[in-house]
Design a protein around this nucleic acid. Structure first.
Length: 512
DNA sequence: TTCCGACAGTGGGGTCGCAAT
DNA sequence: ATTGCGACCCCACTATCGGAA
């Protein structure tokens, strides 16, 4: 199959907003693909490379390359070149990658170049990723879409399912079962704004502490232990403590879901930055493990002793977990008897925050483990802080925000009467707000360089955020975590905005 | 007919490892 | 030795489509 066909379909998919039409377009293409093309065509149209990320970003892609006059590349040729490219490493590798990319782009038409650039940066922006590809695959093969989706969750990715389906038809889906050693997509949580709201929705429930660490799925089969992240990357080699803990349990075969986090000498959780730095260390694991030891803390059991627990109610899965894992290695929790028992839930949240954790997750006791879904039966509740900050500048947006000033630079007042930037945000804005702020900010613009417009510090905006973290980038030595706009405060003047001093005082645990 | 769940998009900050400077 | 890039952790929120209610 020619790459130009994929580029054309991708363009058509991007051009329609109807999901049903996107699905139909993908299904048509999947039916056209020859068996040998399938392992490439499917991930490409889902916006991903079969090789995963291969060290090519905007810099390696470089400046525009004159396009070829007509299409000639086949998808298999492209895949072969990218496979070679992914293996390039060592001195001179950046130039070699750039050379190979240049070769590829030079042989591509303009439409193909657009598609390839999107694919390589992970930004195809066609309004269709895995979920639409799954639907298209179901349509192309006559399989039930729910069955395809479930197989993909259990396989951990689309490709093996696609290959099996197109080769053997819908009955091939039966081969995809929960298997120890093969990671499945983890269940995710929705947000709720309060414990009352969460308990109101779920009724009788468990309230569990939410640890601010790294999500892990741990598989043990005898002496073999594998540890995977939320995106199913294998991080076993970086976390010897987790392997050891898994081997120490009495049962030999299981899949557990949990979090790894580092505790200090007094049992307080270290900051997310410290835990994440440790988990990210790959070179000198021994030293990293000595300086920042991590502990696995589990909250769910997917499989125990060969029994698949996914479809059991959470209450039963947790009973299995409690039999297998000793209490210190489990997340703290309390059972709540529904909205009449709200006090117990509130008290547990307060105690959890007191212990230095992030918040709680409220979980329905009847729900199965919805692999890969953001199930409505898990609701996270975290305290939200707010500040009134001053807009110092804004950046022009991309994609659907092209032509709109989008990303705001946020400042707090300093002692000398100036402002210190605490971070940026593009979140929380409605289309109407984007429209309004674009106009308003242009009125008070004083400078424009690159894609940043600097403005007079006159507009006050109310910002929600999850906490402070250390920063080497910003002048106050701290930055806001997950900042988002709530509303503009046209009733407030910049002199009434919050100061750096008050921000720091609100978070005594964080020091610049 | 209205409501709501699921998706995609739009980017934020930090840290690590590696290659280039 | 320092800097820049890319990958991958954490993530919130809005708009939209289309099936559920």
């Amino acid at each position: 199959m020619l790459l130009s066909r994929l580029a054309q379909v991708s363009q058509e998919v991007a051009a329609t907003s109807a999901r049903s039409r996107k699905t139909a377009l993908l299904a048509e293409l999947f039916r056209e693909a020859e068996p040998d093309d399938v392992p490439v065509v499917i991930p490409y149209l889902a916006g991903r490379l079969p090789q995963g990320r291969i060290g090519v970003g905007w810099k390696v892609l470089g400046d525009p390359v004159p396009p070829a006059a007509g299409p000639s590349l086949t998808v298999r040729e492209v895949d072969a070149l990218l496979t070679r490219l992914a293996k390039v490493s060592g001195p001179g590798s950046q130039a070699e990658r750039a050379r190979l990319v240049g070769e590829l782009l030079g042989a591509s038409t303009e439409a193909e170049q657009r598609f390839l650039r999107g694919l390589l940066t992970g930004e195809v922006r066609q309004g269709a990723l895995d979920a639409v590809a799954v639907e298209g695959l179901a349509q192309a093969t006559g399989a039930a879409s729910a069955d395809v989706r479930r197989a993909v969750m259990l396989a951990g990715s689309l490709q093996p399912v696609a290959g099996a389906l197109l080769a053997d038809g819908p009955q091939a889906l039966e081969r995809f079962r929960l298997t120890v050693g093969r990671p499945v997509q983890p269940m995710l949580a929705h947000s709720a704004s309060s414990v009352a709201e969460a308990v109101g929705k779920l009724g009788v429930c468990a309230v569990e502490e939410k640890l601010d660490g790294i999500r892990v799925q741990v598989h043990r089969d005898g002496d073999t232990v594998r540890v995977h992240t939320r995106t199913l990357d294998d991080i076993t080699d970086r976390l010897p403590e987790v392997t050891e803990a898994a081997r120490g349990l009495d049962v030999e075969r299981f899949i557990l879901d949990g979090e790894v986090i580092s505790f200090d000498g007094t049992g307080r959780p270290r900051s997310f930055q410290e835990t994440a730095g440790r988990v990210g260390s790959r070179v000198d694991v021994v030293t990293a493990a000595r300086e920042t030891p991590v502990s696995p803390v589990f909250f769910d059991a997917l499989s125990v002793d060969g029994r698949d627990l996914l479809d059991l109610p959470f209450a039963e899965r947790h009973a299995e977990l409690a039999r297998l894992v000793p209490e210190p290695m489990r997340v703290r929790r309390t059972l709540v008897d529904g909205p009449d028992d709200l006090e117990a839930a509130e008290r547990f949240l307060a105690e959890t925050l007191e212990r230095g954790h992030e918040g709680v997750v409220v979980k329905g006791l009847q729900a199965p483990y919805s692999a890969g879904r953001r199930g409505a039966s898990w609701l996270k509740v975290k305290p939200v802080h707010t500040l009134d900050l001053v807009v110092l500048a804004a950046e022009w947006g991309h994609g659907r925000r092209t032509g709109k000033l989008s990303n705001l630079h946020l400042g707090a007042r300093t002692a000398d009467g100036g402002f210190a930037m605490l971070g940026k945000t593009f979140k929380g804005m409605t289309d109407a707000m984007l429209e309004w702020q674009t106009g308003r900010l242009r009125e008070i613009a004083v400078d424009e360089s690159g894609h940043t417009v600097t403005v007079r510090p006159e507009l006050v905006v109310e910002i929600a955020y999850d906490g402070l973290q250390r920063s080497s980038r910003y002048p106050a030595g701290v930055t806001l975590r997950f900042a988002r706009v709530i509303r503009y405060r046209e009733d407030k003047r910049p002199e009434e905005a919050d100061t750096v001093e008050t921000v720091l005082a609100a978070h005594p645990e964080v020091r610049p």
